[in-house]
Design a protein around this nucleic acid. Sequence first.
DNA 1: CGCGAGTTTGAAATTCTTCAAGATCGGTGG
DNA 2: CCACCGATCTTGAAGAATTTCAAACTCGCG
Lengths: 245, 245
Amino acid sequence: MKATVPITTAQLRSACSQCNLLELCLPFGMDEQEIQRLDELVGTRRKVKRQQPLYRAGDPFEAIYAIRVGWFKTDVVLEDGREQVTGFQMTGEMLGLDGISTETHSCNAIALEDSEVCVISYSRLEELSREFEGLQHQFHKVMSREIVRDHGVMMLLGSMRAEERLAAFLLNLSQRFTARGFSGVDFHLRMTRDEIGSYLGLKLETVSRAFSRFQEEGMVEVQQKHVRLVDLPQLRKLIQHPVGR
Amino acid sequence: MKATVPITTAQLRSACSQCNLLELCLPFGMDEQEIQRLDELVGTRRKVKRQQPLYRAGDPFEAIYAIRVGWFKTDVVLEDGREQVTGFQMTGEMLGLDGISTETHSCNAIALEDSEVCVISYSRLEELSREFEGLQHQFHKVMSREIVRDHGVMMLLGSMRAEERLAAFLLNLSQRFTARGFSGVDFHLRMTRDEIGSYLGLKLETVSRAFSRFQEEGMVEVQQKHVRLVDLPQLRKLIQHPVGR
DNA sequence: CGCGAGTTTGAAATTCTTCAAGATCGGTGG
DNA sequence: CCACCGATCTTGAAGAATTTCAAACTCGCG
């Protein structure tokens, strides 16, 4: 664990105008001047240690969050303890949109590794997006994208079998890593088999077996959390032409 | 099939200010004067016959829709023909939010019975919601509610077994019928077993069997599409205390 | 009255889960 | 530096849930 380096307030304040996540984040589509105004929107950053919550179901909703560095999972927990992971979020992605509807967060957001987020005051965001068409539009797109993503997950959970689900999951990660300039064929999973299983509606053993089968078939190389996608086309085929249906 | 009655343009134009769906729809939270301005937002209504699409995946996105009367399903279809129903929408609910993100609809919206929707120009909605805080806020809530709903469906698909899924589905319908002033214990399903199955990630036979079991246990009375929920508490218990886990 | 779409039911097949036992990894302390 | 620990992961075998296949039934409608 790194020692915490004291930082000044100035450092704590984010500058959207200088952030390299610009195109992935809210400011996309705004002009330079507008983006400068955005700096007032993002009040502070916040660090969240591995396994710690950024927010919890039931917390009052005040802000949404843009991930600067790190990984999170969001999950919903039933009374009887069953957990459903509803998503994994990485650098450049948004968290907290679930809270707008009831002004209370409806899921937990937990850091999968030491992470840092930009805190975006929701009331300020609404104000500013009444002023800037570009911001408004981009924000709506971000919300809509989340809805579309969720439909994809429903497809996965409702219509695919175990190996297809895992293949789809890996391809999705691959695409997101690529979009952020990381390798899309060689990466490190931040989540456990159990968490993947929860997300995919499978038991951890089933996830593990699917990984093993992929490895046997020479599609991926897996060593615990490290994954190498050796045969992307084959993985894609797996989804489009599922065996035996 | 009813004969199409000729209607005047005046009738075709919706008047939000006079609509009895006010509290269920976008205008919620706006004052009277603001709502009058809304009338310019909703250009026209549109009738959609049973089995006909309101929009299809790939269609350019221009408007969102508020259902005045009727029922729809939204679905995503994979290349190999597998269909995943992503939702069932009834009177007072919104359709089309999926299109904002890419300016192209990402799913199909099909009428389950002869229906009628208010067509809400999206660009006008963005304009007006820059002007009216109440409208803006309500619109954001509607989108966020959709996200929360989707998380609920993921929970259902990922963590529940067949009978729990059906129970949750029936309770959800019950609650929505009640919210609209219809009976929440005695209603007519607009969708087939196959569509329910697709939504719940089950085969139609499994849905049918679950219905039969509920009937045997005296929780519901089913006759084809007609459903009577005889023992709501028992149905609720089924979700919270699933058997054998 | 019969047709067809939609539904129900049974029995066999399949997929996934459960239970159980080891294996592996990263980190910790002697 | 190495042995050990807990957490995580893998693998096998048995069991359970769901699907598949097949056949019969029901109901509204022409």
